[in-house]
Design a protein around this nucleic acid. Structure first.
Length: 273
DNA sequence: AAATGACCCAACCGCGTGTGG
DNA sequence: GCCACACGCGGTTGGGTCATT
């Protein structure tokens, strides 16, 4: 475990005003877990004081929610989860906690790190602003079809249908993957809600503040990543996209790159020199 | 084997929001 | 309405690890 490695290094630990900072030790973790098991979580400042931890309430809360909480998943994001992140980010932007609500066991911090290290990295390589419509289009045209194939493959090999269907809290605002603004839906490029940018490419419509748009609130409560129309991915793959100076690697599409545990975005791009 | 740079992620910080007195 | 406090969110950073030269 990565944290365990860090626990060995106490040289970075700082103490300011009697409060410790930096990596958590095993003893601190155990103390926090034990205290929460006995008293429950919440009231973080008093928890920090009463537990005997020389940490701020904030630090305790973060450590618990992001790492120690039993239902926190550790390990690489599945293709299904990556697909969902791309989909939801296209709707909500950097609303990490909101996105995380729809990925059980994943934290906003983890999703945020994924976006910054994997997705934004690709945007940098392509010299495209990751928040631009153009990058959304790149994702829509190239990235999602591959992820869908990946999802499809993993669902037939190791995932059951139920694991690819994500239940969404009925009481919360619910994204509509099949809706007008769905990235995946717009892969069909036939949506009437597309707009055209200066390149003449049809772009999906994204309201400036999706949270205020009724279009994102739906009347069903199931997000089924398997329900997307996969048949068009072949068509998309053969579509000419002359606007960008890169191409997808053929290798990625071969069976050899299917990995049940993690899909590297690096496999997607092969840059022309 | 050593040096260097890139990558990754846990943790911190500042700020906004909600709540109770 | 105002204030203080607690909590949560999003952005950023520090440093350990990995890959490359």
């Amino acid at each position: 475990m990565r944290a365990a490695k860090k626990m060995d290094t106490s040289c970075n630990e700082k103490e300011l005003d009697g409060l410790r900072r930096g990596p958590w030790t095993l003893d601190e973790d155990n103390l926090l877990i034990h205290y929460i098991n006995c008293h429950g979580e919440g009231r973080w400042n008093s928890l920090a004081k009463c537990s005997g931890l020389k940490r701020t309430g904030k630090s305790c809360r973060l450590r618990w929610l992001n790492y120690l909480k039993p239902d926190v998943k550790h390990g690489n994001l599945t293709p299904q989860e990556q697909l969902l992140i791309l989909e939801l980010h296209s709707k909500w932007g950097n609303r990490w906690s909101k996105i995380a609500q729809h990925l059980p066991g994943r934290t906003d911090n983890e999703i945020k790190n994924y976006w910054r290290t994997k997705v934004q990295k690709q945007a940098r390589h392509l010299k495209i602003d990751s928040n631009s419509k153009r990058f959304v289009e790149v994702i829509r045209q190239f990235w999602l079809p591959r992820l869908l194939e990946k999802v499809e493959h993993s669902s037939t090999s190791s995932f059951s249908t139920s694991t690819s269907t994500m239940e969404v809290d009925q009481n919360n605002s619910i994204p509509q993957p099949r809706g007008k603004e769905s990235l995946t839906e717009n892969m069909n490029s036939s949506s009437s809600n597309c707009s055209s940018d200066s390149t003449g490419i049809m772009l999906p419509y994204f309201p400036e503040n999706p949270l205020k748009s009724d279009n994102f609130f739906v009347d069903n409560n199931t997000f089924d990543v398997m329900s997307f129309n996969h048949s068009n991915t072949q068509d998309l793959r053969s579509t000419d996209m002359p606007i960008l100076d890169f191409q997808l690697t053929d290798d990625w599409m071969s069976n050899g790159l299917v990995d049940d545990t993690f899909w590297s975005t690096d496999e997607l791009w092969q840059f022309r020199k």
